[in-house]
Amino acid sequence: MSFINYASREINCKIVYYGPGLCGKTTNLQYVYQKTAPEAKGKMISLATETERTLFFDFLPLALGEIRGFKTRFHLYTVPGQVFYDASRKLILKGVDGVVFVADSQEERMDANIESIENLRINLQEQGYDLDKLPYVVQYNKRDLPSVVPVEELRRELNFTGVPDFEACATTGEGVFETLKAIAKLILIDLKKGK
């Protein structure tokens, strides 16, 4: 849940990047980190294995600017995508304000995408959240690769509720900021409703 601090006039929100192993969650954060002005970002933390697979989470704090005199901060987290890290994934979803699902567009990863999105729904439910009521966007990553599934088909399989979705190539940065902006905007609109 967001944290509103009237004393320091700050508002903090938590965004979680979810998705199957090797879909590019960490790469999304790395690109955001590279392209953000030093004064707007904190240190990026990656708790990863020796082979650079995410072990627990990546963390990137961003200060986007002010709204109505309140500093707006977003804390970006990724989960470990590999199936057997489910216990860790659940922990990172605690207190989430918005979710980005990063799908791997390659044909051979379709099953992994579907499994991961079902896992997301279940893990959110365990924490008392409903994915359909949470700010939520989908990113179809790796659009630059040869064996990609057409977007219409990805949409049918992974985004049947019709949330905002984006094509991306996280290594070159295409679609990365569009995705981030969309989820940040949904979270702020949600806050405005004053849950």
Partner: peptide, 18 residues
């Protein structure tokens, strides 16, 4: 009785952040 700062936020406010 909410003095919630975001109640009157506009789309422009949000766009300005980016």
């Amino acid at each position: 009785d909410s003095d919630f700062p975001f109640a009157e936020i506009t789309d422009d406010d949000i766009d300005n952040l980016f």
